[in-house]
Design a protein around this nucleic acid. Structure first.
Lengths: 334, 334
DNA sequence: TTGAAAGCGCTAACAT
DNA sequence: ATGTTAGCGCTTTCAA
């Protein structure tokens, strides 16, 4: 019962071409026939078969967001906000958005095969074989929050070194010199950036950082909890802990609280990202807000440029907002 | 540079048909030619054009999740978890998932036109014109967390009346009789269910419910905050507040805390849903956990049945887990 | 078992 | 300005 262009053409007493032309605003069609065709289309509620258009056009009008299973937008609040912004943009541009989670087996998901999508936004990274396949098929992609991306890829990253410095300096401005670090070694570049900034800033104010104050086995809330436990067990209790990611702070604060350390009275905490729960936890987390919406917009825009065949330069986000909440205590002597 | 079936056929020295057959495991192909074809496919890394398949098959291998802008999975943690489960199922079945947000203008999004999707899962509801269009196009859909759905539609709902009763009875078991209600009138059916259960349960233990104890202008955290403010301002302070949705409890608790009421010492709070932040807020919220993953699975399964042409009965979720956390105080005299 | 060929519904180059 | 027609790349019927 689905109408086809052929039937519309018949009803209007014209050829398929004319119908196609008026639908797409191409070619040239007389005013009367155009009217007639438009009328029939309205009347019949006709909508062209999209698969057919896609085949003819070699376009899908669809982009996809992809990420490793563990860091999908459904598990990672940072990526969630970015994805939300991407969806907004998609809608604005008449594109559909598909979400794809990448399994460990690195199998290429059907979304990426045979030109099902016009472009993809990866979070963090995609398996190399997938990236290569995409390049082979010439479907453009960008990598948001990328680590270890090959230089030829277009990435959208945050300036972790700068943000780490900024957070640390804030802590120092509040009188802290005994500051521990919780970061992740599982993303080597990230580890390098955060540690580097930490060493750089801290070395100027404190030469005696116990080895336990640099914890890098964090990957999520639970592992950050363990990191904090190790810091506490070391019996060199810092006055502040800088967590390279808000979710680490959530775990670390939980640990410290459960062990009876009042926060921020005994220990202050800071993070980076400002994800949804950061303002809900107790105490609300002082952190570096990164504009996730903007990151989403930028990701989409870069991808969109590439889809139009243009080249797109990687961008590194340096803007931030310091969210002073209640997890940092001013310990300067007044 | 993209290979086509024609070229593969040529390379293997066979016809397109044979290639198609071996790819889809249909028809009958001699063992030698099958081997040969498989080999070529492997060698060349050939993947058939999906749009072409879709056109031929009249299928998309894609389902979509759709919801009003304000209640998108990106703004509603309850729907977020459901969507996550749907994605899991999609992957398992080789389907892609697209996310679609519906604007107020009720314009039919491109995803729904011309058979771009094989089925859709709505949250809460879709605009009537969209639902009708889908029915006209014979694309199946289900409505998760539906309110006011037409009886012929397949829905996945929660038993709000039962859950409200359950929560209230828990509160009562802890000695509370002065219990206020925060719910939403914006979903009439929901309002009816929660209020009904409230009146029913409460009437048995307390005949003097001040009018301000029934607040129904909640729609989100902020409006629930206002509801709580009205309860407090009424100067009839209840010992407990039941919020028909966790996010209402979040707002209400915030209000009470800011006004200086220690929770749960002065006022206890309960909710329904058990969304992500419920366990992070201060104090952690005692609530009725609904299995959102299961809801996602069921939604997908029902839709999938319908896509196979089967009929699917609506289901109403009655299972729950009582999450006893720290927002309810036992005020019985020991 | 295999191949030829007719669709699927649309776009767009080409003719008229 | 309009119609004719050859694709787009695959599936599947029908013959051989």
């Amino acid at each position: 019962m689905k109408l086809t262009i052929k039937e519309i053409a018949a009803m209007a007493g014209v050829s398929k071409a004319s119908v196609s032309y008026v639908m797409n605003g191409k070619g040239s069609v007389g005013e009367t026939t155009r009217k007639k065709i438009l009328e029939i289309i309205k009347e019949t509620n006709y909508t062209p078969n999209q698969n057919s258009r896609r085949l003819s056009n070699g376009k899908n009008y669809m982009i996809t967001v992809a990420s490793p299973d563990e860091t999908s937008p459904f598990d990672n609040l940072f990526y969630l906000d970015i994805t939300k912004a991407v969806l907004e943009k998609c809608k604005e541009c008449g594109y559909s958005l598909s979400i794809c989670s990448l399994s460990d087996d690195d199998k290429i998901p059907p979304e990426f095969l045979g030109g099902s999508t016009d472009g993809v936004i990866f979070f963090q990274s995609g398996a190399l074989n997938i990236l290569h396949e995409l390049e082979r098929q010439k479907v453009p992609f960008v990598i948001a929050d990328a680590y270890n991306a090959e230089p030829r890829h277009t990435t959208i990253t945050t300036d972790n070194e700068f943000f780490t410095e900024t957070a640390l300096k804030y802590l120092i401005s509040k009188g802290h010199t005994d500051i521990a670090l919780i970061t992740s070694q599982y993303l080597p570049e990230y580890y390098f950036q955060t540690c580097n900034a930490y060493r750089h800033v801290i070395s100027e104010i404190n030469q005696n950082i116990p080895i336990e104050w640099i914890q890098s086995e964090a990957a999520d809330e639970a592992s950050a909890y363990e990191c904090m436990a190790r810091i506490i067990d070391s019996e060199h209790i810092p006055t502040a802990v800088f967590c390279a990611d808000d979710i680490f702070a959530v775990g670390a604060i939980k640990c410290a609280s459960e062990r009876g350390y009042k926060i921020p009275d005994y220990i202050s905490f800071m993070g980076i990202d400002d994800i949804l729960i950061s303002s809900y936890i107790n105490p609300p987390l002082t952190t570096i807000n990164i504009d996730k919406k903007e990151m989403g917009y930028i990701s989409f825009d870069l991808l969109f440029s590439m889809m139009k065949g243009e080249t797109a330069e990687s961008v590194k986000i340096k803007t931030y907002k310091l969210m002073e909440r209640a997890s940092v205590k001013d310990i300067r002597i007044k």
